[in-house]
């Protein structure tokens, strides 16, 4: 197994958590109610914690002296490996919830699988994170139901949010040549095998929310290869400001 493949994989896992954590932290102080503010911050914190562990692993595997901060704050768009879903702007609360719903349901299944990874570090991170993500999923599922089966306005907004995010779903289940060997070696999770269970979970919650499953559409891909949306560059320019403006300083 090449270290390059493992580096790539750890970056994908870490970047998904980092970018979504960053997005959620944008809500802090501005959420629709105090309880939601606290929950979003809490989920963001879990994700930033996961990112720290995965990016540390990436830096260790790479062996070039980059730590988690160097990877988080000093890579540019082309080197980020997160899926497109997590970098989508928060939009209104419905869009944020739709993104969280699709992602957390996927991440929970992914981490459940990764608890059995032959890479001990990945297995250990996943074992801790899967418990956190079970809460994220519950939070998102419950809000999907409240918004779908709430008022006409909330229903319209959550349907629109889901519609916006849906084109990024297929990317979550993509397996490319870069990680295929890791799956064969029992280190990475075969996300293709998670699709049926994910579909069933999503269908169940959408039924509870009295929402329809969005129609299939052409998948938008590219995040895993560094081909992102325009949104990521702006997110990074904000997140990386201090490290870029004052190179070499210790914070």
């Amino acid at each position: 197994m090449s270290d390059k493949a493992l580096f790539e994989y750890a970056c994908r896992l870490g970047d998904d958590s980092l970018i979504l954590g960053q997005r959620l932290s944008e809500w802090c102080g501005h959420a629709p109610m105090l309880e939601i503010d606290l929950s979003l911050a809490n989920i963001g914190l879990d994700l930033i914690g996961q990112a720290t562990h995965f990016l540390k692993l990436a830096g260790d595997v790479e062996g070039k002296g980059r730590d988690a901060d160097a990877l988080a704050f000093r890579r540019d768009v082309l080197d980020f490996r997160n899926c497109l879903l997590v970098e989508q702007p928060n939009g209104d609360f419905a869009q944020t919830i739709a993104r969280q719903f699709l992602f957390s349901n996927w991440q929970e299944l992914l981490f459940r699988d990764l608890t059995r990874s032959r890479n001990e570090t990945i297995a250990a991170i996943a074992a801790k994170a899967v418990k956190e993500v079970a809460y994220h999923t519950r939070f998102a599922d419950e809000w999907m139901v409240r918004l779908g089966d709430g008022t006409d306005e909330s229903r319209g907004r959550i349907a629109a949010g889901l519609d916006w995010m849906w084109r990024f779903v297929d990317e979550l289940f993509e397996v490319d040549a870069a990680i295929a060997p890791l799956i064969a070696a029992g280190i990475g999770a075969d996300v293709r095998a998670l699709r049926t269970e994910w579909d069933a979970r999503v269908a169940k919650t959408l039924a509870d929310a009295t929402l329809e499953l969005p129609k299939p559409r052409r998948a938008t891909l590219g995040g895993r290869a560094g081909h992102h949306s325009e949104h990521l560059g702006h997110l990074l320019s904000e997140m990386q400001f201090l490290q870029r403006a004052y190179p070499g300083a210790t914070w």
């Binding site: 959420a31 109610m33 939601i36 609360f93 409240r146 709430g150 008022t151 909330s154």
Partner: peptide, 9 residues
Amino acid sequence: EGAWVREAA
């Protein structure tokens, strides 16, 4: 901006 969320809940 959060009024619709609280109303929905």
